[in-house]
């Protein structure tokens, strides 16, 4: 295909998209109106599956396949970061020096760490009841661990963060989501259909069928992914330095 032809094809596609989008915009309901056809159906479906938080019901029940895609995007992005930010041969590894943090700040961080971690787990566990869920709670829990870097010392963080295990947990969270979906298929219904577990009593922790389990899988995946991602960034910013001349034997880090 010549360049000119490709531009024509692109122009045709863009014109079609613009026409369709324009037509769709004129058919949109008004802002703040009381007609919500999709909303009504989503709320009805969520209530029939005893999931109090309709957004969680959409994310992990009605549209669980989309969430699998989003989770895979994060997984792939972190994988790419791990590959790109590895220690190359012309870089050397230096031991970070202890940081000097004033005692009240350090004390606050040590008290805030468990509180933040519990808030993160709370947000994951209540995903089917109140705003939040695996993604939000996972990020909060991962941030809690990094309080050790930002207010205590990098070496304290390294002690509680065996990156290899978090990489395994990342993959396990991703796999758990797929396995739960496949289990529904084995049970005789569609992939990721919410048909495995009883729906439970409305507005309790054990309600919503597989929604809490999928939430937990996402929470594990996201928390581990963020830890691994930040570990690579921290390695680059704190530990890995470009060598003035390439060393003959690169130091191993583990």
């Amino acid at each position: 295909m010549s360049r000119r032809l490709r531009m024509w094809v692109l122009a045709l596609g863009l014109a079609g998209l613009a026409a369709l989008l324009g037509a769709a915009c004129f058919e949109l309901p008004d802002f703040g109106g009381d007609q919500h056809p999709y909303g009504d159906r989503a709320v009805r479906a969520a209530l029939s599956h005893h999931t109090a938080n309709v957004v969680s019901s959409v994310n992990f029940d009605l549209r669980a396949l989309d969430t699998l895609g989003e989770e895979s995007i994060l997984f792939g992005a972190v994988l790419g970061t791990v590959v790109l930010l590895r220690q190359t041969r012309d870089e050397r590894h230096v031991e970070p020096a202890p940081a000097r943090v004033s005692p009240p700040v350090r004390r606050y961080a040590l008290y805030a760490l468990p509180v933040t971690l519990v808030v993160g787990l709370y947000v994951v566990a209540h995903g089917q009841l109140s705003p939040g869920g695996g993604f939000q709670g996972g990020v909060v829990a991962a941030t809690a661990l990094h309080l050790l870097y930002i207010a205590v010392d990098y070496r304290a963080l390294r002690r509680i963060r065996p990156v290899g295990r978090y990489e395994v947990a990342d993959a396990a969270g991703e796999a758990a989501f797929v396995v739960l979906g496949a289990a529904a298929m084995l049970g005789g219904s569609a992939f990721l259909a919410n048909s495995l577990l009883p729906y439970g009593e409305f507005n309790t922790l054990a309600s919503g069928g597989t929604v809490p389990l999928l939430n937990a899988a996402i929470g594990m995946e996201v928390a581990s992914a963020v830890v691994v991602l930040l570990a690579r960034f921290l390695d680059q910013a704190v530990e890995i330095e470009e060598s003035p001349k390439p060393p003959s034997t690169p130091t191993s880090r583990e």
Partner: peptide
Amino acid sequence: DVALSQLAVGTALTPLLLTL
């Protein structure tokens, strides 16, 4: 839910990644 996602990512994680 979206507000929580925004806060979780934007409050501490993004500044940390950027400044590092």
